[in-house]
Nucleic acid binder design. Structure first.
Lengths: 192, 192
DNA sequence: AAAAAAAGAATGAACATTCATTTTTAATGT
DNA sequence: ACATTAAAAATGAATGTTCATTCTTTTTTT
C-alpha cells in the first residue's frame, strides 16, 4: 500500500519552496531543479505530485487562496450587524496579509501577472462570496454606498495588498496604530 | 554618420512589442525572438539598442513610468487649493490608467513582480514628488488625514490599478459615473 | 567607398520532462 | 517477531528543446 505520511510532508515542502522561490525570482525564472533542491527532493519526484510546472503553480495558487479565505472568514457569523461584520472580516484579512507575508505576496504576484491559468483564477474568486453578501445587505440597509462591488473591493480590501508589498520591501512598517488608521480609511471609503 | 530617424522608430517598435508581449505572457515567457518578430526586426538588432534582455525591460519600465508621471502632472500648478489639486492629479492618473491600458498594465506587472531591478524601481518612485508635496500641504492645513503617505497612496491612488486590471480582464467596465464614484471614495478615505 | 546598421544563422547554456534503476513500504506467510 | 516480495515512491542521469546572445555577412547610409 501507499505510504501517506511522508507524501504529505514532501508535497508541503514543494509548495513552500515554490512560494518562496517564485516570490523572489518569479515563476519562469524559477527552475524545477531549484524547487526540488529547496524541498530536498529529486526533480523527478515533483512529477509524482504534480503533472507539470504549470499544474504545480496552479495548485499552489489554489491551496494558498483557500488558506487565505478560510482564515478571513473563520468564525464569521452572517447575522451580526453590517458594520461589525465588515470590521471583523477586514481585520482578519489584514492580519493574514501582514503576518503571512510570503503567502500573501505570492497571491499578489499571481493576481497581477499572466502566470496563472484563467480557470484557476476564476476558481479563486468564488471564495469571497460571504463578503459580497455582507455588502449586499449593507447596501439594502443604506449603510454602504450603492456602488459596484469592484469599487468597494478596490477601496477597502485591495489597499492591504499594496501596504503588504511596501512592508515586505522594507520601505514602510505598519503598527497597531497604522492598522487602525488603515481600517478607518477603508471604512470611510465605503460607508455612506 | 549615424542615421537617427529610423533608429528612433525601431526603438519605439521594440518598446511597444515588449509591453504588449510581456503583458500577455510575462517577462520570462517572452523570447527575444518574438519581440524582434513583432517589431519587424532581427533578434540581433535588439542588441544595437539595448545591452541585453534585462536592460531592455528596465529601460521600457523607466520610459513608461516617465510617460505616466509626465501625464499625471501636466500643467499642474502648486498654488491651487489642496482639494482642487488632488482632484486634478487623481483624475489625470485615472485617465491614464483607464485609457492607456497597455502601458498601465505593464507598470502594474513591474510593480508586483521581481521582474525589475531594484535601482530602476527606486528611480521610478522619485517621479511622484509633486503629489507627496500636495499631501504635506494638505496635512498642515488640516484638510488631509495626518497619516503615512503610503497609507494615503494605498487608499487613494492604488485602487485605480485594481480597477484597471479588472477592466482589462473584462469583468468590470468603468463609465463616467463610476469614475466619479471612485474619485469620491478616494477623497473620502484621505480627507479629514 | 568607408562606416554604421541590420540581418540570419550559429553557438552554447539552461531547463522541463522522461527514463532506467534503486530504495522504501507494508501486506503476507511462517 | 521476522523474512519475503511485489508494488509504490524516489532518485540521478539522460534527452531534446528553447532561447539569449554572438558571429559573419549583407545592406544601407552619407
Amino acid at each position: 500500500m501507499a505510504k501517506l505520511q511522508k507524501s504529505i510532508e514532501k508535497r508541503e515542502a514543494l509548495v513552500r519552496a515554490t512560494i518562496h522561490l517564485v516570490n523572489n525570482s518569479g515563476f519562469h525564472a524559477t527552475p524545477m531543479s531549484k524547487i526540488a533542491k529547496m524541498a530536498n527532493v529529486s526533480p523527478a519526484t515533483i512529477y509524482l505530485y504534480f503533472e507539470n510546472k504549470q499544474d504545480l503553480v496552479n495548485k499552489v495558487y489554489l491551496d494558498v487562496k483557500t488558506k487565505f479565505t478560510d482564515y478571513a472568514f473563520q468564525n464569521y457569523n452572517e447575522n451580526i450587524p453590517v458594520a461589525e461584520g465588515f470590521e471583523k472580516i477586514w481585520k482578519r484579512i489584514a492580519h493574514f496579509k501582514l503576518k503571512e507575508v510570503e503567502e500573501a505576496m505570492f497571491l499578489a504576484q499571481c493576481d497581477n501577472t499572466p502566470m496563472i491559468d484563467e480557470p484557476s483564477r476564476q476558481e479563486g474568486l468564488k471564495h469571497l462570496q460571504p463578503l459580497l453578501n455582507l455588502w449586499h445587505k449593507g447596501k439594502q440597509e443604506g449603510i454602504i454606498k450603492p456602488i459596484s462591488d469592484y469599487l468597494l473591493y478596490a477601496y477597502s480590501i485591495n489597499p492591504l495588498s499594496f501596504l503588504m508589498v511596501m512592508q515586505q520591501r522594507g520601505v514602510f512598517k505598519i503598527d497597531q496604530d497604522g492598522l487602525e488608521e488603515a481600517y478607518q480609511a477603508a471604512w470611510d471609503s465605503i460607508k455612506i
